[in-house]
C-alpha cells in the first residue's frame, strides 16, 4: 500500500483555483521532489496536505497511510505522522524551543496512547539531534524562532523533524534563503533521516538542493498540474532548459 495517494486534487484560496487536478503516489522509503515555477501551486499542495483550513479542497481525494487525509484536522494529520517543514517558520515569543518540542512530542505520544516523555528522557535525544544539525545548545532555551536568522529557522525546522520522526515529511522550499554551508547541514540532517519507513516530499524551486538530497523521483508542477515525472535526471534537464520548456508541454496538444 502506498503511503500517500493523491487523486485529482483541486484546491482554491479565496476563490481562486490553484491546484487543478494533481495526481501523485508516494511509497514509504521514497524521496520525491516537486519542482516548478513560482505560482505553480507547490506551496499550496504542501499546505493542503498539512490541512491548513484557509485552503479549500474542491475536488479529489487523498489517502494517507490508508486514511482519508482530507477529513483530518492539522493536529490529527500531525499526530498521524505528517510533518511540514515551513517555508516561513513562525515565531512564538516567550516559549522555549525545548519546551515547545517536548509539548509537541507529548501531544503526539498522547494521541498514540504512549506515555509522555519527561525532561530526563527528552534531553539526551534533543542534544544529539542538535549536534546533527550543528546547532548551538543555547538554542534550547531561546524562544521558538524568535530572533533566529533565516538559516537558523530552516535548520530549526529540520531539528523539529528529526525529533518528531514523521512518516511523511514535506519540505517546503527549505533551501530558500540558505547559504551553501547551511544547505549542506540541512541536507545532511535530511539524509540521516532517510529510511525504509519514511517518505519525503521535497518542494524546491532550484535544482541545487537536489545535488545534496538526491530524490528517487522528480515531478514538475505547472499551473496546478503535474506535467512531467521522471528520475533525478529530470531536475538537471530542467536546470538546463528552464521551466519554459515544461510550460510549453503543459498546453493541451
Amino acid at each position: 500500500m502506498a503511503l500517500l495517494e493523491i487523486e485529482d486534487l483541486h484546491a482554491s484560496v479565496d476563490g481562486h483555483e490553484i491546484l487543478k487536478g494533481v495526481n501523485l503516489t508516494l511509497n514509504a522509503g521514497e524521496v520525491h521532489s516537486i519542482m516548478g515555477p513560482n505560482g505553480s501551486g507547490k506551496s499550496t499542495l504542501a499546505q493542503v496536505l498539512a490541512r491548513r483550513e484557509t485552503y479549500a479542497v474542491t475536488q479529489g481525494r487523498v489517502l494517507y497511510d490508508g486514511k482519508d487525509l482530507l477529513g483530518m484536522k492539522p493536529e490529527e494529520a500531525a499526530c498521524e505522522g505528517l510533518f511540514l517543514a515551513f517555508q516561513y517558520p513562525v515565531e512564538i515569543p516567550g516559549i522555549g524551543n525545548a519546551y515547545f518540542l517536548r509539548t509537541a512530542m507529548n501531544a503526539i505520544r498522547k494521541y498514540r496512547g504512549e506515555d509522555e516523555l519527561d525532561a530526563m528522557d527528552f534531553l539526551p535525544v534533543f542534544r544529539e539531534r542538535l549536534k546533527l544539525l550543528e546547532m548551538d545548545d543555547a538554542l534550547m532555551n531561546r524562544s521558538v524562532n524568535e530572533g533566529f536568522s533565516g538559516g537558523e529557522k530552516k535548520r530549526n525546522e529540520i531539528l523539529q523533524m528529526a525529533m518528531l520522526e514523521p512518516k511523511l515529511a514535506i519540505l517546503d522550499e527549505t533551501d530558500s534563503g540558505l547559504d551553501i554551508d547551511a544547505l549542506r547541514i540541512v541536507a545532511h540532517g535530511v539524509n540521516a533521516m532517510r529510511s525504509r519507513e519514511r517518505a519525503f516530499l521535497v518542494i524546491t524551486h532550484y535544482q541545487r538542493l537536489l545535488d545534496f538530497i538526491v530524490p528517487d523521483f522528480v515531478h514538475v508542477l505547472v499551473e496546478g498540474k503535474i506535467v512531467r515525472s521522471g528520475g533525478p535526471e529530470l531536475a538537471l534537464e530542467l536546470e538546463e532548459k528552464g521551466y519554459g520548456w515544461t510550460e510549453a508541454q503543459a498546453q493541451p496538444a
Binding site: 498539512a50 516559549i95 509539548t103
Partner: peptide, 21 residues
Amino acid sequence: FYLRQRGLKTEEAVSMIVNGF
C-alpha cells in the same frame, strides 16, 4: 496553524501563545 501542525489542539495552541506572551 504552525502549532497545530506540530500536533497541538487549537486550544492548546492558543494557551501556549498566550502563556509565552
